[in-house]
Computed example of a mutant assay.
Amino acid sequence: MRVFVAGATGAIGRQLLPLLSSTGHETIGLAGSYGAAVEVELLGGEVAMADALDAGALSLAVKDSAPDAVVHLLTAIPGKISPRRMSRDVAWTNRLRTEGTRNLLYAAELAGAKHIITEGFAGIYEPNKWIPATEVAPLWRNPPRQFAPMFAALRSLEERTRQADGLVLRVGELYGPGTIYSARGSFVCEVRAGKMPIIGTGDGIFSFTHVHDAATAIVAALNSDARGVLNIVDDEPAPVREWLPILAELLGAPPPKQMPVALAKLVGGGPGMALMNHRRGADNTLARRTLDWAPKYSSWRQGFAAELPHAAHP
């Protein structure tokens, strides 16, 4: 199968291209710059040059690639995000999830691609700390103001994917190479410096996904007829109060301090408090059954330990 990957040089894309090649697929990676083109070639893919926000150029690039499948992993998330300025920090990613998705799926239709797979986010569900969300659970209706544009962009991406009879893979909090949870990632650096507190009771539930597990899920999806939405997360959703101290201990960092909600609102604003106390975990049962897929790291515990054995002394 010829697979066109938009976002080929991102954290998931760097895992996906070699995996596709090793499983017999021909890969084409979208590149918007010379540096990205070189990286695509090093990852074993053919290069398609275009800007995802240039509809004409993108349509030509996809058509010339003659793909059987199109995978949308386009993001432009900075290495460090401020919850207080979330709407600013993810503004470019929001455009890629709205304009970029429209352009890419239109190009895929013109090129006759049969498989459409897009990257969603499993942290989009209406808060409920007791029950991990299945794919039919309601989405967060009134997220913090700074999150609202991101959630609107994700909803737009999912709606366009459904209209194209494609599959949305809602990945969890990504960790591994190229993420904020890598040995030199911004979140790990904050934890190592003792600057990442537990806000309030730390009840927010995180579902994690290793970037390689996200890539294997994409390969499994290409070999299936799955459509709609699937949660691609590990087996152990966990509250911040549980996983953050374990991460700190692994890093040889000071135990996270406790920060009252009122103080957190003054320091980091409401968005940070919402993440730490209201986020909902996700359930991967349907993805396991539908794709015959399982994460290599069934828990963030094993994944963090594997990724960060020397993180205390980078």
Results as ranks from 00 to 15, higher is better:
Gly194Lys: 02
Ala220Met: 08
Val240Asp: 02
Asn223Arg: 14
Val168Gln: 03
Ala152Cys: 06
His210Arg: 06
Ile199Tyr: 04
Thr209Gly: 05
Thr161Asn: 01
Glu236Ser: 15
Ile199Phe: 06
Ala248Glu: 08
Ala215Ser: 07
Leu157Val: 03
Val211His: 04
Ala220Pro: 10
Val171Asn: 07
Ser186Asp: 08
Glu158Leu: 10
Val229Thr: 13
Gly202Ile: 03
Asp203Asn: 15
Thr201Ala: 14
Glu242Lys: 15
Leu247His: 04
Thr161Ile: 00
Ile198Asn: 12
Arg160Met: 14
Arg162Ile: 00
Ile218Asn: 10
Ser182Met: 00
Asp213Pro: 01
His212Val: 07
Val171Ser: 04
Gln163Ala: 15
Pro245Ala: 08
Glu249Leu: 11
Met196Tyr: 07
Ile232Pro: 02
Phe206Ser: 10
Gly178Lys: 12
Ile198Met: 12
Phe206Trp: 12
Cys189Gly: 06
Asp234Ser: 13
His210Ile: 04
Val211Ser: 02
Arg155Gly: 13
Phe151Arg: 12
Ser156Ile: 13
Gln163Ile: 11
Asp234Leu: 12
Gly202Trp: 07
Gly166Trp: 02
Cys189Ala: 10
Glu249Tyr: 04
Ala183Thr: 08
Gly166Glu: 03
Gly178Pro: 04
Leu247Tyr: 02
Tyr175Glu: 00
Ala238Cys: 15
Asp213Ala: 08
Trp243Cys: 08
Arg160Thr: 05
Glu159Lys: 09
Ala221Thr: 03
Gly166Gln: 00
Cys189Pro: 01
Leu154Tyr: 11
Pro177Arg: 12
Gly178Gln: 06
Ala153Gly: 03
Ala217Phe: 02
Phe206Cys: 03
Thr216Gln: 07
Asp234Asn: 15
Pro245Ser: 09
Ile232Thr: 07
Val171Asp: 02
Ser156Gly: 13
Ser186Arg: 05
Leu247Lys: 09
Arg184Asn: 12
Pro239Leu: 05
Ile205Ala: 05
Thr201Arg: 14
Leu169Glu: 06
Ala164Trp: 05
Ala193Asn: 11
Arg241Asn: 06
Phe208Cys: 05
Gly200Ala: 05
Ala238Trp: 09
Arg227Ile: 09
Val229Lys: 07
Gly166Cys: 00
Ala248Asn: 00
Phe206Tyr: 12
Pro197Met: 01
Leu154Gln: 11
Ile232Phe: 09
Val191Arg: 01
Pro237Gly: 08
Phe151His: 15
Asp203Arg: 15
Glu158Asp: 13
Glu190Ile: 00
Lys195Leu: 01
Ile205Met: 15
Ala238Phe: 10
Ile180Tyr: 06
Ala214Lys: 05
Asn223Ala: 14
Asn231Gly: 10
Thr209Ser: 15
Arg184Phe: 03
Val211Pro: 00
Leu230Asn: 06
Ala152Gly: 11
Ala153Leu: 04
Ala164Asn: 10
Val229Phe: 05
Pro177Leu: 09
